[in-house]
Design a protein around this nucleic acid. Sequence first.
DNA 1: CAGCATCCGTCTGGATACTG
DNA 2: CAGTATCCAGACGGATGCTG
Lengths: 120, 120
Amino acid sequence: MSRKLLEQNGICPVATTIDLLSSKWKVLIVRDLLTGTKRYSELKQSVAGISQKMLTQSLREMESDGLVTRHAYAVIPPKVEYRLSDLGNSMRPVIETMANWGSVYLDQNPDKRKKLAQSE
Amino acid sequence: MSRKLLEQNGICPVATTIDLLSSKWKVLIVRDLLTGTKRYSELKQSVAGISQKMLTQSLREMESDGLVTRHAYAVIPPKVEYRLSDLGNSMRPVIETMANWGSVYLDQNPDKRKKLAQSE
DNA sequence: CAGCATCCGTCTGGATACTG
DNA sequence: CAGTATCCAGACGGATGCTG
């Protein structure tokens, strides 16, 4: 229903952004690609908890949306790298703003921290 | 599964933010409350396409997450107003950054605009 | 007006097994 | 390593009907 959202909210810029970042996974993938090119297996690691199905599916959609580019090397074993396109990179401020907000929130709500130790 | 995301990604600030803004609807609700207090029926209008079930459910969750406050007036017919808490208001930069990104994106991809006319 | 309760189809997404 | 293919449970969310 992601496309429908855009339709129903017309040309709202916020809805547009959400539309391209439709799932949580995509946001986290962008987050991890902001630091540079990553292999499939690296993403699988850094995006804690994602299944290969969701990772592949998300990457494919992001590719067709022009957020990510895929670079496959004809070697054995296979090696595939993903990196942000210019469009994907332009999302940096969005992710950073989220990161800032989350940091402040975590600072002010120490209880939310208790859960686990760092993951990245 | 929203809480699980936070757990599995540890204390990642980005994941934290996504966690509180877990659904698209919530983002759009915050967007609309940024301009001030709104009644239930007004939100139902401005958040195009949302069902009363989803609206109520989202508002309840946002309330318990401390993003939104609810003010019910004992009149007939009933009147209930919703407004952002300080925490909710602090999300303004997040939504604005999304809006900015979406605006630029729409400007550079005029084809995405064709769909419909303005909705808000 | 502002909900709540319920039914129920749809789709998401995890688990598992297999391949170039 | 980097996927693809299937199965399937459970969550999501719309529609409908009913209240204070």
